[in-house]
Design a protein around this nucleic acid. Structure first.
Length: 458
DNA sequence: TCTGGGGTCCTAGGACCC
DNA sequence: TCTGGGGTCCTAGGACCC
């Protein structure tokens, strides 16, 4: 397993590969700035749900010492003292901007892996181009067409590309592009020697600590470590990282997104919830969202999980619990999924706690209509809204095969066309008092005709 | 008062089997 | 006193990522 050929033999010679990683700088902040130029040159943070903590920071905000994930209440005073601006996150806007950015980037290579909302890999192998110049062209085009600043890192492997991107971002002398494939080995080594090992993709806090005790401090130290030793002491994952740093590509570019293996929907509440019916509403709403995602990828779930917990920061005793429920028949029917998580909720709910968060999870996900087992009681299971067995459904009496599928399709279609939550289960409730806090929200500039960006005269 | 959400992969350990 | 060995499957939990 630790023989490098087992990782790379099918990938061609290392030197021929060139992978680019492009990512948007301070992506969420940059998206906001596109539509609100007044945010330019000012310290700006975008906050997590419930306006909890900073998940994106402008360069100016970073310069103020604001950390990633820092709670808003700790930095809010900088609004007055330093002109800090805190914005609620606007994911509808960011994902729309993301799609536009990915479309532009995808035109630079036939092989693209969209890795996250703000970054993607492009395979530039074998292309007869000046890679550094191409990277600058990419940056220019994204900036000009949608207004987002980016950086580009290029390397012989994904891990190298990530590292190169880090260099491009942190060191201004590279002008936003760092192409390791244009450098000689000793130049690469010198760069790697100047970067802490904790910056490597795949080395988190824990691994960093353990590597330090082994005397591995810089990226170069890790690159030069014995892969066999690394594999034995840590894992094959970190061993792959060593090979990747050496320019031996072990990780493939995954240009087709595999369907999700699990789907989570969870939220912290705007204020504590202790009343079971409120929790039921929340769980119903979360499951509706999860089930929509499930259907969108054409899958069914064979199990569900529900969890609730109190705040870990509260002085009161902590209570958290979860329960996993297998389904007799895998399904994508929101009503069936909701029924199960509600039953689970009733089993783990304990009165007397201030709940701060709840969530649901879809498990054992598989393609719909493939090897699906139906059981003796499936008809009962898939019954209509009132729990009547489906033999009695009106739709079936007039010859429509599957009532549930039709209903879900219609719901999804209406919500896609008329806007989210146009049709929903009554169990989700209306205007729940525990809903998220989003007091600093920007408009849906690009996705709602009523909130189009307008040019103001001032 | 106020601390995010959604994923993946790997490993260890238990259950079970022969 | 002395109590096999190895394989598979599953799950929980840890570590990582953005």
């Amino acid at each position: 397993m630790s023989d490098m050929r087992s990782f790379s033999s099918h990938l061609g010679s290392p030197s021929s590969r060139a992978i680019a990683l492009i990512d948007g700088n301070n992506f969420y902040v940059s998206c906001e700035r596109v539509f609100n130029p007044k945010l330019e040159d000012r310290p700006v943070v975008v906050l997590s749900n419930n306006d909890g903590c900073a998940v994106a920071r402008s360069a100016e905000a970073k310069a103020l010492g604001i950390g990633m994930g820092q709670p808003w209440f700790q930095i809010q005073e900088m609004e007055m003292t330093h002109g800090l601006i805190g914005l609620s996150s606007n994911y509808t806007l960011y994902s729309d901007m993301s799609q536009r950015m990915m479309t532009i980037l995808g035109q630079f290579s036939p092989r693209q892996e969209v890795y996250s909302i703000d970054e993607c890999f492009l395979d530039l192998s074998g292309m007869d181009i000046d890679r550094t110049a191409t990277a600058q062209k990419i940056r220019h085009q994204v900036r000009q067409w949608i207004g987002i600043p980016t950086c580009v890192g290029i390397g012989a492997s994904k891990t190298q590309a990530k590292l190169a991107n880090h260099i491009a971002k942190k060191r201004s002398e590279w002008a936003g592009v760092c192409d390791l494939t244009a450098l000689a080995e000793h130049q690469i080594d010198r760069l790697m020697g100047s970067i802490e090992v904790g910056e490597v993709w795949g080395v988190g806090r824990k691994l960093n600590e353990q590597l330090q005790t082994l005397g591995i401090h810089s990226v170069l130290d890790l690159k030069r470590a014995d892969p066999k030793v690394i594999s034995r002491r840590f894992s094959v994952v970190l061993e792959r990282t060593v090979w990747e740093l050496r320019g031996v590509a072990c990780l493939n570019l995954e240009d087709i997104t595999p369907p999700r293996q699990q789907i989570i929907s969870s939220r912290s509440f705007g204020k504590p919830v202790w009343y079971l019916p409120d929790l039921k509403q929340a769980v119903t709403a979360y499951m509706s969202r999860a089930a929509e995602k499930l259907r969108r990828q054409g899958s069914v779930a064979g199990g569900v999980q529900v969890f609730i917990r109190t705040s870990p920061f509260s002085a009161k005793p902590f209570y958290g619990n979860s329960i996993t429920l297998p389904l007799i028949t895998a399904t994508d029917d929101t009503r069936v999924l909701v029924k199960h998580v509600i039953q689970g909720l009733e089993r783990i709910y304990q009165p007397g706690h201030d709940y701060q968060k709840a969530g649901v999870m879809l498990l054992d996900i598989r393609p719909k209509g493939q090897g699906q087992i139906t059981d003796l009681f499936a008809d009962m299971e898939q019954g209509d809204l009132f729990g009547r067995p489906s033999q009695q459904n009106d739709m079936e009496r007039i010859g429509v095969k599957n009532n549930a599928d039709q209903l879900m399709q219609v719901m999804d279609a209406i919500n896609a066309r008329m806007g989210k939550h146009t049709v929903k289960l009554a169990g989700e409730g209306f205007k729940p008092h525990w809903a998220m806090k989003r007091n600093r929200h920007s408009p849906a500039y690009t996705t709602d005709i009523h909130q189009l960006a307008t040019v103001s005269a001032c």
